[in-house]
Design a protein around this nucleic acid. Structure first.
Lengths: 216, 216
DNA sequence: CGATCAAAGATCCTATAGGATTTGCAGGCG
DNA sequence: CGCCTGCAAATCCTATAGGATCTTTGATCG
């Protein structure tokens, strides 16, 4: 049995700062004061610095020497296109591998459960939607059986999450049916269909998000 | 003109530790003492700790709380297979995008120059071979025009480099012709041929490396 | 002879203090 | 009126010291 309690402050700080950025409590592009953050979290600057170094690798903050850290600015349209391209490379491949992996009933049920998305009711509907959508794509990547592939997908999700929360007009319910098409193909062990369904979902999602860039 | 002098110790330490691991001056799996490393590099533990945090994100070291850091152990056969799978997802896509990007003569010449590989003569022939091979795949990923794709490929190279140096029987000259097939396809702006040539190269390289696992 | 327990050593983790650098603003000059 | 120079404040960066934890070694008991 593990202690279940966090042992290192660094991990706590890492999670806290990640949440801060994800929830836009610190605006994109805003500078991050190490000392202030340390006081706010009631820890010393050292673990803060360590956590920020890890977050820099994840691309959530950027560091300029002798100046400080800053939250990564919002994605430009070009970067967004790159992100979609990258997802189109990774996620169809993950879906295909999951389809060919011979999943058992439990794994398939878990994926199917993650495919459903919450409706537009309730508080924090946007956050709930985003979290559940992330869970589905995470699970799909995990079921590919390739850990490196999974990690790469998770890495990208951070950026997408960041982007979406800032343009909160999510499209409830639209993605769910597309998700289920993917699940069905995976369940049928049809690798080509799974990849194709994933491609269709990603391009559709891309087109849904694209209008947000018109206003900038 | 840049100061050319080190601005942050952390970056220097990061590079130094990376080199230490890449050159196997610290054995895979060996523990890394923070204080000893700080003394060796003549810096304080703080920047060392910061650099190690970044290296952990890169997967070159692993941390166990209250115990310390350790160099990542050698790839198991399963992990090696995963790595190849991952490369088969990323690099053909990168080659295809490079082929469709309409490269100018300068860029194409740079890629062609990187495709040649040094012969088995001279000191540090293995290191030279590995470095040049890395440079080719690096350049190819960069010419895809997608920064995220490029970063992902670079991230994987670290692991492969680690693996190869430990099994130093490289296959000089074999890869070069395969490299040139890729360059030709990219130069002809034939995306499908570029992807296929890259796939062929990667699977061939995989088969060349596979025998090393028999003896373990 | 093997296993268990205890204590010493080493190491990591955290906190605090001082030096160096950048940034912002005020004042003077062209 | 605009631009530049100098100063002050804030911030980051580095170094050092102390507390907590794990690992290891040695001795003792079954």
């Amino acid at each position: 049995m593990q202690p279940a309690r966090r042992i290192t402050l660094t991990d706590d700080v890492y999670a806290a700062v990640q949440a801060l950025i994800m929830d836009h409590e610190v605006q994109p592009g805003a500078r991050i004061n190490i000392d202030a953050l340390a006081r706010r979290l009631a820890v010393s600057p050292t673990p803060v610095r360590e956590a920020l170094a890890r977050l820099e690798s994840d691309g959530l903050v950027s560091k300029t020497p002798l100046v400080g850290y800053a939250a990564t600015p919002l994605l430009t349209r070009a970067q967004f296109e790159e992100l979609v391209e990258m997802r189109l490379v990774l996620e169809p491949a993950a879906a295909a591998k999951a389809a060919g992996a011979g999943l058992d009933a439990v794994e398939l049920a878990g994926l199917r459960g993650a495919a459903d998305l919450p409706g537009p009711d309730g508080p924090d509907a946007i956050a709930a939607f985003t979290a559940q959508d992330a869970r589905f794509h995470h699970t799909l990547a995990e079921l590919s059986g390739n850990r490196m592939l999974h990690d790469a997908v998770v890495r990208l999700r951070a950026h997408l999450h960041l982007f979406r929360l800032h343009f909160p007009t999510a499209h409830y319910g639209v993605s769910a049916s597309e998700h289920h098409r993917i699940v069905d193909a995976v369940g049928a062990a049809d690798a080509d269909a799974a990849a194709e369904a994933t491609r269709a979902h990603l391009t559709a999602a891309r087109d849904r998000h694209l209008p947000f860039f018109e206003s900038r």
